[in-house]
């Protein structure tokens, strides 16, 4: 089967700034690809080029085998898009908008059904401007999905959602994958990428720095992770077991020993009378991998995302 989205050597510049700089990847039908990267890494520009909203300065983009900008009308009926800046009419109600959008497509979902499925019954007849951020995001998601898309482009779909709603949305996206939809998701949330994505593309300064399944990206690191609330002397641990001990953050330490020496570490701590809250074979967290790959100081949290809006 050919890819649903093909991005080849994509370049997008704004004046002097190369927002996207030679990016290539594909998204297969039935796959969720998460695009991860710091603010300004080029995620939104990439999504907008795929949506046909922007013209690539070099390289090309194909959606379902077609140039999405030159042949917009052939693609639009099979594309579901959730833009980061919303685009949801604030004076209209969710019911009016979802009903109108349904009429744009040949074989839409039942508007009443998707309103219920996304938990919007209670607000379906209120104006969008009176909704919370998370509710407005769900309306936007409903507008992206009501036409039964084969390709979904979701730019930070769960921003502003509470944890329960976010989980429900993840389930909905899982269901899209089951239906064979190709999903391109941009996100700042490591957990979202880890939970949902079949593959994660980490981009930085417009270029691809990693592209793989989340568990490949977070493959076991060398050594053990030790977590302890009590103070201890890392130099003495290092001397006793002849290994390197380095501080990770907070109460977490990295001990450079193979997995079978785990018990020796536990015994040493017991002999010191220091409690352990955890000893594990080190697995990198996606966030650590991401921060190392993108190599800048920006904390990957939802907070700066809020500040951005």
């Amino acid at each position: 089967m050919s890819p649903a989205i093909t991005v080849t050597d994509l370049v997008k510049t704004y004046g002097e700034h190369r927002a996207v700089d030679g990016l290539s990847f594909t998204v297969e039908p039935g796959e969720i690809l998460a695009l991860l990267g710091p603010n300004g890494a080029g995620k939104t520009s990439t999504a907008e080029c795929i949506a046909g909203l922007r013209h690539p300065d070099a390289g090309h983009v194909e959606v379902l085998g077609v140039d999405p900008r030159a042949e917009r009308e052939r693609v639009a009926g099979r594309l579901g898009v959730m833009l980061q800046d919303g685009g949801v009419h604030r004076s209209a109600t969710p019911a009016e908008l979802i009903g109108t959008f349904a009429a744009y497509y040949d074989d839409p979902l039942d508007p009443v059904a998707i309103i219920a499925e996304l938990g919007l019954d209670g607000v379906a007849r209120r104006r969008v401007r009176t909704l919370s951020g998370g509710e407005a995001q769900r309306v936007s998601l409903a507008l992206a999905l009501v036409g039964r898309p084969r390709v979904a482009l979701l730019d930070e779909p769960t921003v502003g959602m509470d944890p329960a709603t976010r989980r429900a949305t993840w389930q909905r996206l899982d269901a899209l994958r089951e239906d064979g939809v190709a999903v391109l998701l941009t996100t700042h949330l490591m957990e979202e990428a880890e939970q949902l994505a079949d593959r994660v593309a980490v981009i930085d300064r417009g270029g691809l720095v990693a592209l793989d399944a989340p568990d490949v990206l977070t493959a076991p690191d060398r050594g053990l992770h030790v977590e302890t609330p009590g103070p201890f002397e890392p130099e003495r641990l290092a001397a006793a077991l002849s290994c390197e001990v380095t501080h990770l953050e907070g109460q977490r330490w990295h001990v450079d020993l193979p997995a079978e020496r785990l018990s020796a570490v536990a015994v040493w701590f017991a002999s010191q009378g220091v409690a352990l809250s955890g000893v594990t074979v080190a697995r990198q967290r996606l966030e650590d991998v991401y921060l190392r790959l993108t190599d800048n100081d920006e904390p990957a949290s939802a907070h700066d995302e809020d500040a951005e809006r």
């Binding site: 046909g52 909203l53 639009a76 919303g86 685009g87 959008f101």
Partner: peptide
């Protein structure tokens, strides 16, 4: 201003 027109641009509405 609220990108409503832009969003119409990614639907089949011409």
């Amino acid at each position: 201003e609220y990108s409503v027109l832009r969003r119409y641009g990614v639907t089949p509405l011409r």
